[in-house]
């Protein structure tokens, strides 16, 4: 218990160093919140779009080798389209009609789920879809729609990786400097009989408390800034809405604790090298 009390007292005693550490951690956490929120939001948009696209099926006459147009292809009538649309595999259909004629290549069939494509195609063939008509998904439209989102996702992922690596490097550096500064204190505590694991626990508690405070502020500021940042990076149409969900918050908390533990591990590795007598002789 006293280890926690000592750790909390130490937080107040070493304000300068702790504030510096806190600012760094806060910047890392807030940046990570922005990056991860954008990444998760775009991931969800891409996933929804992929599911939606994979259920949108169209048919069209296959292009002939000669002339590269549809001339001479079999025809699909409005009756054919209604017959195809009468299927258990579909959740809906949008039949293309123009100039009083059925337009098969403007008709969109909505599958109940993407994996029903082959079963639905087989059913349409049975119902009379000519062999020279192809069943397809409009991949180019999908690519066009998804490209700016993927672009934003790539930026957020790269930013997240850079922030985490940079943050880890800075935190380890600060931790090493802090341990150098606190070498004497560690020597005194060890000379008084404090066990190594308690010294380590004390340092770890200090880092965890700072991490938690920075996590709270980082989450708030990161959430507020996520939408403006995403808006600035978004090159697609309309607007993109970023919201922090519980899973993202937990991911950030996990990453922060991991970061704190990595820096704690650096401290541990250095502390175990010190014998109290050597530290105190060096000092005295």
């Amino acid at each position: 218990m006293y280890v926690f009390e000592h750790a909390l007292l130490n937080l107040g005693k070493n304000k300068g160093r702790n504030i510096l550490l806190g600012i760094m951690l806060f910047a890392v956490i807030a940046s990570a919140v922005i990056a991860l929120s954008i990444f998760n939001a775009t991931d969800s948009i891409i996933e929804n779009a992929r599911i939606e696209f994979n259920t949108m099926i169209q048919i069209r006459p296959q292009r002939r080798q000669m002339g590269g147009n549809d001339n001479g292809a079999s025809t699909v009538t409005l009756e054919d389209l209604h017959r195809f649309a009468d299927s258990d595999y579909l959740s809906g259909v949008q039949i293309g009609v123009g100039g009083g004629f059925a337009r098969g290549n403007e008709t969109v069939f909505y599958l109940r789920s993407p994996e029903l494509l082959y079963a639905f195609e087989a059913e349409m063939r049975e119902k009379g879809l000519p062999d020279d008509w192809a069943v397809f998904r409009d991949e180019s439209s999908y690519r066009r729609m998804i490209a700016p989102i993927e672009n934003l996702q790539d930026i957020s992922l790269t930013f997240l990786i850079v922030v985490m690596l940079f943050g880890a490097a800075i935190m380890i550096l600060l931790s090493v400097i802090a341990i150098r500064e606190r070498k004497y204190e560690i020597g005194v505590l060890r000379a008084m009989g404090m066990k190594k694991n308690k010294v380590v626990l004390c340092l770890w508690v200090e880092t965890i408390v700072i991490t938690f405070v920075c996590f709270v502020f980082g989450i708030i500021v990161g959430t507020v800034l996520s939408n403006p940042v995403a808006g600035a990076l978004w090159t697609g149409e309309g607007q993109i809405n970023i919201a922090l969900n519980g899973i993202t918050a937990l991911q950030i908390l996990g990453a922060s604790l991991l970061l704190a533990t990595i820096t704690g591990a650096v401290s541990v590795s250095r502390i175990t090298k010190y014998e109290p007598i050597k530290i105190l002789m060096e000092r005295n």
Partner: peptide, 26 residues
């Protein structure tokens, strides 16, 4: 109970804190 020539007190803590901490460790 050790009294060091270099004293080896926690300099950023109060006299009270130094002694209470020592009692806690013990």
């Amino acid at each position: 109970g050790i009294i060091f020539q270099g004293l080896n007190l926690l300099t950023n803590a109060t006299a009270i804190d130094n002694i209470v901490l020592s009692m806690n460790i013990s």
